[in-house]
Computed example of a mutant assay.
Amino acid sequence: MKISFMQVVRLVGMVLAIAGIIYALEFMERGIAVWFWVLLLGIGFVGLLWTFRLTQRRLAVEKRARERSEKKKRGRRPKR
């Protein structure tokens, strides 16, 4: 499985967001800081889901194209 650089960046951002949420809940009395980290976590999750779906779609298209080309090759039999 190929992992792109942006997936790694999003994953690291999500880990930092979880740490930020824990920190904000522990040491700050309600405020925008908690919502900032929750928003960052949500954006990271949606980004990872989006890149995963794009990767899966691309692999499916490549597989279909490969199957079509193999089918065409098998369909071409020399005539006697």
Rank of each mutant, 00 (worst) to 15 (best):
T55Q: 14
G75M: 09
V8P: 04
L48Y: 02
G31D: 01
K72S: 15
F36A: 13
L39W: 06
E29V: 06
M6V: 11
E29N: 15
I21Q: 00
V9A: 09
R80D: 13
W37I: 04
F45R: 03
L48H: 05
I43N: 04
T55S: 12
G47W: 03
I18Q: 04
G31C: 00
G42D: 01
S69F: 06
L16N: 04
A17R: 00
F36I: 10
A24P: 01
V38K: 00
Q7W: 00
M1V: 11
F36T: 11
F27C: 09
A24M: 00
G47E: 01
L48N: 05
F45D: 02
K71T: 11
Q7H: 05
I3G: 01
S4R: 08
F5G: 03
T55R: 13
Q7C: 04
M1Y: 13
F36H: 06
F5K: 08
G31P: 04
E26C: 06
I3M: 04
W37D: 02
R10L: 14
R53H: 15
F52T: 07
V15P: 01
G42A: 06
M28Y: 14
A19I: 08
V15D: 03
K63P: 03
I22P: 04
T51W: 03
F27Q: 09
R58I: 05
W50M: 15
T55A: 12
L49V: 07
A60I: 11
E70K: 13
R53K: 13
R77S: 10
R64M: 07
L54S: 07
F27G: 09
G42Y: 01
L59H: 11
R30T: 10
V8Q: 15
V46A: 06
V46F: 08
G20W: 01
